[in-house]
């Protein structure tokens, strides 16, 4: 069985936010507008977290794309009173929108803070609704939404493979964020397939699972090396 996972190379990531907009366009993520946005109600399934360290002139900045890590042992699943969120056999943490009653318990439970509540009815001022991706549900006021690992793109990939009577090839399925990335920082694939690029990257000494000590079992790994130490690396890696 396929188990989808993602590796994000933070050394490659530049924080340009192309992935954030790609995700918005792909997944019909609503624009909340200036007022709601100023109340911290922006919905971004994928966001870039920025970290600034140091004092002038030795200031350093790092960027980290943060999205649902599709936990193996997800806190959100445990707290949902109506089972609107669950773990699929392929390792996705799915949100079933018509089931959700908007308790927001999952958002409180999520240590990665990547679950979003629709505080207002999403709107697309005509004719912007023409840009809605028909492969993805439009959510409504009062329910939660979150990253799906672009399940609709996985579905299309699987459909093509099924038509051609073959398994899905490694690298064939990419979520919108990975596809758009100008630096190729995001790798997506099957963690169960030991030969897949993403499975290899999970084994890299640079790989780190976010907040892994909480026991959540993330399926997203971050790869990071640290500082420049002369033009040759201290250790040759991957």
């Amino acid at each position: 069985m396929t188990e989808w996972g993602m590796a994000i190379d933070v050394d490659r990531c530049t924080g340009c936010e192309a992935c954030v907009v790609a995700c918005r366009g792909e997944n019909n993520v609503p624009v909340t507008g200036p007022v709601e946005s100023s109340r911290g109600r922006t919905i971004e399934w994928l966001r870039i977290e920025r970290y600034m360290e140091g004092a002038f002139p030795d200031v350093r900045m790092r960027f980290k794309p943060v999205l649902c890590v599709h936990c193996d042992n997800a806190p959100c699943v445990k707290v949902c009173p109506v089972s609107a969120t669950y773990e699929t056999p392929q390792g996705l943490n799915a949100q079933i929108h018509p089931r959700c009653i908007g308790t927001r318990a999952c958002a409180h439970a999520c240590p990665y803070t990547i679950r979003f509540f629709n505080w207002s009815e999403p709107s697309w001022e005509s004719p912007l609704e023409q840009t809605i991706n028909p492969d993805v549900a439009v959510r409504w006021k009062g329910i939660m939404e979150k990253c799906t690992f672009c399940v609709q793109r996985i579905r299309r990939g699987e459909d093509t493979a099924k038509e051609e009577e073959r398994p899905v090839r490694d690298g064939e399925v990419d979520p919108a964020c990975a596809q758009s990335c100008p630096t190729r920082a995001i790798t997506f694939g099957d963690l169960e397939d030991p030969d897949s690029v993403v499975a290899q990257l999970f084994k890299s000494p640079r790989a780190e699972l976010p907040l892994a000590d909480l026991g959540t079992g993330p399926r997203v790994a971050y790869l990071q090396e640290g500082e420049w130490r002369g033009s040759v690396r201290a250790r040759s890696r991957d």
Binding site: T88, L92, A94, I96, H97, R155
Partner: peptide
Amino acid sequence: VDCVVCHK
């Protein structure tokens, strides 16, 4: 009968 087979 996995939910995401039909739900999007």
